[in-house]
């Protein structure tokens, strides 16, 4: 099947998911429950995507655990987005290298 057909299906689905709720509902939501619900959506969603997925990101779970700890610690210290991201990434790399070295 043409690769372009896949890409079109992928792009159209993703865009419509984003565009439809944004354009159809223009009025402020009256319900206090719904407003509160939407207030908590970002935190809940990002958390669910991160954990426990980060534990399975590398070959060894311990690398993910250490990366998570480093990330959380730096985020608590209010380090910037890119610092936290780079540090977590570098931690996984270092941990995997170390394990590979020790297990040889």
């Amino acid at each position: 099947m043409s690769i372009y057909l896949y890409i079109l299906a992928m792009a159209a689905t993703t865009y419509l998911i984003r565009a439809i709720p944004l354009t159809l509902l223009k009025k402020p939501i009256r319900s206090r429950f719904l407003r509160s619900f939407l207030h908590y959506v970002p935190t809940a969603c990002l958390t669910a995507m991160t954990f426990p997925a980060i534990l399975y990101a590398a070959d060894h779970m311990i690398s993910g655990v250490v990366a998570l700890l480093v990330g959380v610690l730096l985020a608590l210290k209010k380090k910037s987005l890119i610092v936290v991201a780079l540090a977590s990434s570098a931690t996984v790399f270092a941990a995997e290298q170390l394990i590979g070295f020790l297990c040889r």
Partner: peptide, 15 residues
Amino acid sequence: TALSVMLYGMFIAIV
């Protein structure tokens, strides 16, 4: 592998 963890790092930094 290390690059893929950057994504999670970004989420952590936001949450």
